[in-house]
């Protein structure tokens, strides 16, 4: 996936999650019936939650391999070498 699309996906993911856990969606899946001993609504919420985590993990990995790790400088204990700015005296 191109970089911009990945970022767009990263932007949309939380909103996608929000929609799924807010009414009316969550209302649709409200059920106290037991499925394998677990109330239906719990299955839904934990299912959505797991899916979001998996998607988030995939996205995070892709955002790394996309080569922008270079733009995240580690926070140094010592002051970072600051680039000389020739125009600093302007």
């Amino acid at each position: 996936m191109p970089r911009q699309k990945l970022r767009d996906a990263a932007f949309i993911l939380p909103f996608f999650g929000l929609i799924l856990i807010m009414p009316p969606f969550v209302d649709i899946f409200f059920s106290t019936r037991l499925l394998g001993g677990i109330p239906g609504i719990l299955l839904y919420i934990f299912g959505v939650w797991t899916m979001l985590i998996v998607l988030g993990a995939i996205l995070s990995r892709r955002l790394i391999t996309d080569g922008d790790a270079a733009e995240t400088p580690p926070r140094p204990m010592q002051p970072p070498p600051q680039q000389e700015r020739p125009d600093a005296d302007r």
């Binding site: 934990f46 939650w49 797991t50 998996v54 995070s60 790394i64 995240t72 400088p73 926070r75």
Partner: peptide, 23 residues
């Protein structure tokens, strides 16, 4: 935070931690 890249892990691992707490 020591490195910005740590957020990449926290971005999904912290939600996973919360899920386990709630399980």
């Amino acid at each position: 935070n020591a490195r910005e890249s740590h957020l990449r892990t926290a971005g999904w691992l912290f939600p996973a931690y919360l899920l386990l707490i709630c399980l």
